[in-house]
Design a protein around this nucleic acid. Structure first.
Lengths: 354, 354
DNA sequence: CTGAAAGCGCTTACAG
DNA sequence: CTGAAAGCGCTTACAG
């Protein structure tokens, strides 16, 4: 272990010395603040380039006692699905790590079944005047409205889980939904004959607003089309997310077509389908989404064959980190950071990091 | 953006004030240095607990001008395989990020085909007196010898890519080899009938030292046994890694059994097998390892069906980070950090982060 | 437009 | 065994 030597032949002090000014003036130039004559500004900038000056981030953060206030808005975890616990965990982890670097995160929740709760929470957030916002745009119109307000208040915002059509966000961190459906189809094409019948199941209260499910089924179908596969593809939309409704819809579908070989469930509700198949003693290949405890149980028992996962925890973590890096260091952030499309089976789930 | 207030009602100053001592004494207690009476030590420790004191890492790193010198030893990337470029990238990324936190990394390489080069480089490293070492234990005996020397010099070391039987390492970050073979078999079981013949191919100059390949094929076989699957499994070991040799061995194998349905290649050399299959116009299901450019090309063209990947870049990155966290903050490190076992196809490789 | 000085929360010689 | 003081590389009022 050695010691740092000549630590600051390249710091602000050295720049100040060479430019024959005070370090305060150097600081002004570095941060593009006003109140410096063109001449000295040029002189200093030249030296900065010569020295290839890199600010010491440690010292920067320590000296500037700024506190960044971030707000996150995601759905509340519910009995029906624990999916949103993962992004929350990611946010909390980021919070923990950033705490000592002067970041405070306020975590807000909304009810996935209540647009008004989203609107209400977003208003509270705007009033709190945060330096940055992360949210899941579950309700398209309401989310667009929220993002517009963020823009007009000059608050950078990051989206996770699904994207918004307009482009004002600092970043989107989440799946490419179309492609995750496409991959599901790819996987199935390996597992079936071209004559096998496939059932696509969307389970969601608001299919119209949950356009992300539709994007997945679009991607799914596109694969079969692109590869000229002739499997018959049926589709049902289940609008009530309780088990009874799911059971009823699936029973009906199977009554109409009793030779379906594969079920493709476009979201995390796949465990309910596994339960149904278990009870009805049907052996049908089952593929769905998301690394939830319930789903893993069925993966273990063989009730679910494959899960497609997209690191929701990492979405929360990275989303917050992106905001921080943008605010604290003006580090450029990837506009779209698509999560990997992970394939989970009985034999690799123990190693998966969500 | 607000300001930090009362920043140090919990800092060393406050502790010193409450204990009625100087901050130097507080510092001594915090770092368990000698030269403090039992009495004051107790007093200070009590206050530390009361305040739930968390040192400001920024200030800590800034004030202590320690420089940590790390050394890494991994195989040189070769024409035959670019596999080791990934861990190198990870190491370089860590280097970049840690540079401003007082970490210097010296990167050493050895020739995968020359034990002596490993021995030679490890000696150079030991002479340089590093604070921590990361290495890939490609040659078992030589690696054990190296690790013993690290231990006796009190240098913490981290292993990547494959593990060593003794347990002195700070951490192992890499695949669970047995299980990655197991997963490969799991995947294949979905894609085949029980009567389909499977060929396992180990391609390596030193199968005996490259016991990690053997662990993969063990895991592979274990899956079939555990699940009472009756597929005939053949195996060949190719000891020369040039294309001609591989071609010859595979031709011979196919001549002896022309109804093989699946090839399982236990390492990254799978692209050579894909090339062979392409030329011989055989359509055989092909599964292998690692996210290399060559392999991806065949994945795209359909020559390779699945790749199993284990984030080699992250191995390098995390390995270095673990050393740093251990040295700088005495943060406890996971003894074994197994990488996820990722399944890559034509349709998700664009999203993969190696 | 510019600079001197204090301070961020620590560590580190040095002196006693 | 203990403390006063300087310093890490920055930022921030404040004064001129």
């Amino acid at each position: 272990m050695s010691k740092k030597v000549n630590a600051e032949l390249t710091g602000v002090k050295e720049i100040a010395r060479r430019a024959n000014v005070s370090i305060a003036t150097v600081d002004r130039v570095i941060h593009n603040r006003i109140g410096v004559s063109e001449k000295t500004k040029e002189k200093i900038n030249k030296i900065i380039l010569e020295l290839n000056y890199q600010p010491n981030l440690l010292a920067q953060r320590l000296a500037s006692r700024k506190i960044f206030k971030l707000a996150t808005l995601i759905p509340k975890g519910s009995d029906e699905t624990s999916f949103w616990e993962a992004p929350l965990k990611g946010i909390e982890q980021a919070n923990l790590e950033l705490n000592q670097f002067g970041v405070n995160i306020d975590i807000y929740f909304f009810d996935q079944n209540l647009k008004e709760s989203f609107v209400k929470q977003s208003k509270i957030i705007l009033k709190s005047n945060p330096d940055g916002v992360l949210f899941a745009p579950s309700f398209t119109n309401e989310s667009i409205a929220f993002s517009e307000k963020c823009k007009s208040q000059n608050i950078p915002y990051v989206l996770i889980d699904s994207d918004l059509p307009n482009t004002g966000s600092l970043s989107y961190m989440g799946p490419n939904l179309f492609h995750s459906g496409y991959l599901g189809a790819n996987l199935i094409s390996y597992l079936t004959k071209q004559t096998d019948k496939i059932l696509v199941v969307n389970i969601s209260k608001e299919i119209d607003t949950h356009h992300h499910l539709l994007k997945k089924s679009e991607g799914f179908r596109a694969y079969f089309k692109d590869n000229k596969l002739r499997n018959p593809i049926l589709q049902i939309d289940v609008r009530n997310t309780d088990y009874q409704s799911i059971q009823r819809s699936l029973s009906k579908a199977l009554k109409e077509d009793d030779d379906i070989k594969v079920f493709f469930i476009t979201n995390s509700r796949v465990s309910d389908v596994a339960r149904f198949l278990e009870q009805s003693k049907k052996k049908i290949l089952l593929i769905g989404f998301d690394f939830l405890q319930k789903n893993i149980e069925y993966l273990k028992s063989g009730g679910i064959d494959f899960l497609i996962c997209q690191k929701p925890q990492e979405q929360g973590y990275r989303g917050v980190m992106a905001l921080y890096q943008h605010l604290a260091f003006a580090i450029p952030v990837e506009k779209k950071y698509f999560m990997p499309i992970d394939i989970i089976t009985k034999e690799n789930y123990t190693y998966y990091r969500n």
